[in-house]
Write a protein that binds this DNA or RNA. Structure first.
Length: 675
DNA sequence: TTTAGGG
DNA sequence: CCCTAAA
């Protein structure tokens, strides 16, 4: 139930994804000794069936069927999950990103025939303990663009994956899988001609909404991407809205954000509320106009414009969520998909290269597991978040200039260099000299409380056009899992994979290499050849798990704490914000915080209507107490007076309304009873 | 989802 | 700011 819900949210509520799944009994399989034995058999059978399969079908591939595939299990220890939905989600987002014109997103495609041989490759492997391994593997099917992950569990480091039944392009082979990765890094399935684009047409709004997240998710989805989030799309979308009078209108991105937040916070799911489209617009009513003495001016708080003027400006924003949060996000749709390397082009300018090169920062992993025998704490970083780019340009700016700005912004970030921060329980560990043990990072601990952050080296950015917002925040990453103390570099050793070897393509990578060795390591780990699995210690796989997979295989059942959400960073209201708030409340009254939010804090994503309401509450309180008792940034008395005035007015107003309502209700009741 | 109010 | 009941 929860799982389902999450998925739906993660994919913008797409409900038409009929994702076939194997019975829960399969997914929940517990590994036993028998599993181990079966695991042995499995490999052989796989090869056998595979060979037959290769002979059998040449190329006919009904993609829909293949992905649905029956679940005739070869090994009894097979758990399968279908990620096609995610892939689809990505496509939508991606395509939308292209169509929305803030950048030209073109997805390269390789020779598809090359992909025909598409094999399942073992993408990620997680060791939960010395006796169990979870393999999360995918097979790619370019025909439909689906990614078909298979999660298997076996014991003793043995593993097997289940080839897609009926899928000609399934093959059980790990090292071939590596090759595939290699091949596909030069391009990926043409998304335009897949069904993802159809969905786009169906739901433009949704598509639009998913632009940001989609773009953002590129990075984590395709681990060699640079994740770049651009806000301008939905900002624009919102600002195009000419009035606030539609109560039913909800900026999609915000909703998505809320959803995520909700996901993080909710312990239970409620039925979705109905849209109240028929609701009478509240803010525009004549009643308001005539009665509200405050309604005159419109003060729109825009944190950006207010401080930077209307000219071109860019600034960076960073994700302020700690990894603790991200451990949740990790289960979300965004960073889950394991897909072969792909490339993105944003124009032909340098950005593409930057994006590509920066891919190193990504990696994926899920939850931690560890060997209690050795005292090494093993980490694996699921993915780093890259600073979000916040771009605001005049409408009459050219697309070219926009591109340039984006490029500059990205370049500036990358040039600035990065630092790594470590978070434990959402708190930054500043003392570099502390041991992990002292920090609370023992192998016995839940490592999901650990987070790494990428912190831009702002010092070097002085020449950049970027201004940093607030405090330099971190780009949280999802940490997840274990990395052996002396990890092998499968990339170099195997020689198969050069995806991760892209590092030197840009300055970024070398930087990152220097500063984030861990990340590099874990990144490469993703592609461990299976033989490395034999060495439990050397195993540093990074499983990208879907939420479902996660549900299937509770990686760390003990860690309920992983759901602990870090408290939001405190962000005191500035005077200008207060002013905007007061202004809005004067006009709209208390009790309409959503409208207030849209009116005055449209672009201040970090201010929720609840925040505004709370702030108003404290403002009223502040206004009532003596100036000596007030703390924090002093609010001009004039504003406080207005607060009191407005509060008094609206309280009265509300009371009136209330009594009216009451009367009306009474009348109605009387009428009803008299009939 | 939004509002309202306590913590 | 968080949490959550209630709408």
């Amino acid at each position: 139930m929860v799982m389902k819900k999450r998925l739906d949210n993660g994919f913008n509520g797409l409900s038409d994804w009929t994702v076939p799944r194997c019975p829960r009994s399969f997914r929940k399989r517990v590994h036993s000794k028998k599993d181990f034995e079966d695991g042995q058999i499995c490999a052989i059978e796989l090869l056998a069936s595979l060979a037959g399969k290769l002979l059998q079908d040449g190329e006919s591939t009904a993609c829909s069927n293949t992905s649905d595939g029956d679940h005739s299990v070869i090994g009894t220890n097979v758990v399968k999950e279908d990620k096609s939905n995610q892939e689809k989600g990505f496509k939508e987002k991606c395509c939308d990103g292209g169509s929305s014109q803030s950048c030209d997103l073109a997805i390269e495609t390789t020779d598809q025939k090359q992909n025909l041989k598409k094999l399942q490759y073992v993408d990620n492997i997680t060791v939960f303990d010395c006796t169990s391994v979870v393999v999360n593997s995918n097979s790619s099917d370019e025909a439909c663009g689906d990614v078909k992950p298979v999660v298997c569990k076996t014991e003793f480091g043995d593993y097997c994956t289940k080839p897609e039944e009926g899928s000609p392009d399934s093959l059980e082979s790990t090292d071939t899988g590596m090759k595939i990765i290699n091949e596909e890094q030069h391009g990926f399935p043409n998304m335009a001609d897949s069904h993802g684009s159809k969905d786009l047409k169906k739901s433009p709004t949704m598509a639009n909404s998913s632009f940001k997240t989609g773009f953002r998710s590129l990075f984590s989805r395709y681990r060699n991407y640079f994740k770049l989030a651009s806000r301008d799309e939905d900002e624009k979308f919102r600002s195009n809205k000419s009035s606030f009078h539609s109560n039913s209108f909800r900026p999609p991105s915000r909703i998505a954000g809320r959803r995520i937040r909700k996901l993080l916070n909710s312990k239970h799911w409620k039925a979705a509320p109905k849209l109240k489209d028929c609701e009478v617009p509240r803010s525009g009513s004549i009643d308001d106009e005539t009665r509200n003495p405050f309604r005159k001016r419109k003060l729109y708080f825009n944190s950006e414009r207010r401080f930077h003027g209307d000219g071109l400006y860019k600034r960076r924003r960073f994700f302020d969520r700690s990894s603790v949060v991200n451990s949740d996000e990790g289960m979300s749709s965004e960073s889950v998909s394991n897909s072969p390397e792909k490339s993105i082009h944003i124009d032909k300018s340098g950005l593409a290269a930057v994006l590509h090169g920066a891919s190193v920062t990504t990696s994926s992993a899920q939850q931690a597991s560890f060997h209690s025998k050795d005292s090494h704490v093993k980490f694996s970083i699921r993915s780093f978040k890259v600073p979000e780019l916040f771009i605001d340009v005049p409408e009459n700016a050219t697309v070219g200039s926009l591109k340039k700005i984006v490029l500059e912004a990205v370049t500036a970030i990358l040039k600035g260099g990065l630092h790594v921060g470590v978070l434990v329980h959402g708190k930054k560990v500043r003392d570099d000299n502390r041991t992990l043990l002292q920090t609370g990072l023992s192998c016995k601990d839940n490592l999901d409380t650990v987070g790494f952050t990428l912190e831009p080296n702002l010092v070097h950015n002085t020449t950049s056009p970027l201004c940093s917002e607030d405090h330099p925040q971190m780009l949280a990453c999802d940490i997840t899992e274990l990395v052996p103390s002396s990890p092998v570099n499968p990339v170099s050793s195997s020689g198969i994979l050069d995806v991760v070897a892209l590092p030197n393509t840009t300055l970024t990578n070398s930087k990152i290499q220097d500063e984030n060795k861990h990340e590099l390591i874990t990144t490469s780990i993703d592609n461990l050849p299976d033989n490395s699995l034999q060495d439990c210690k050397a195993l540093v796989p990074v499983p990208e798990m879907t939420m479902e997979a996660l549900a299937v295989v509770p990686l760390n059942p003990k860690s309920k704490r992983s759901e602990v959400v870090q408290r939001r960073t405190r962000r005191p209201f500035s005077v200008s914000e207060v002013e905007a708030l007061v202004q809005a409340v004067e006009e709209l009254g208390t009790g309409r915080w959503r409208d207030v939010k849209f009116r005055a804090f449209e672009n201040a994503d970090h201010r929720t209507y609840v925040d505004l309401k709370d702030k108003w509450k404290t403002l009223v309180h502040t206004a009532r107490i003596s100036p000596q008792q007030r703390r924090g940034e002093p609010v001009p008395q004039e504003l406080l007076d207005r607060v009191l005035a407005a509060h008094a007015y609206w309280s009265q107003h509300q009371a009136k309304q209330h009594s009216k309502h009451h009367q009306a209700g009474v009348v109605k009741a009387i009428e009803g009873s008299s009939c």
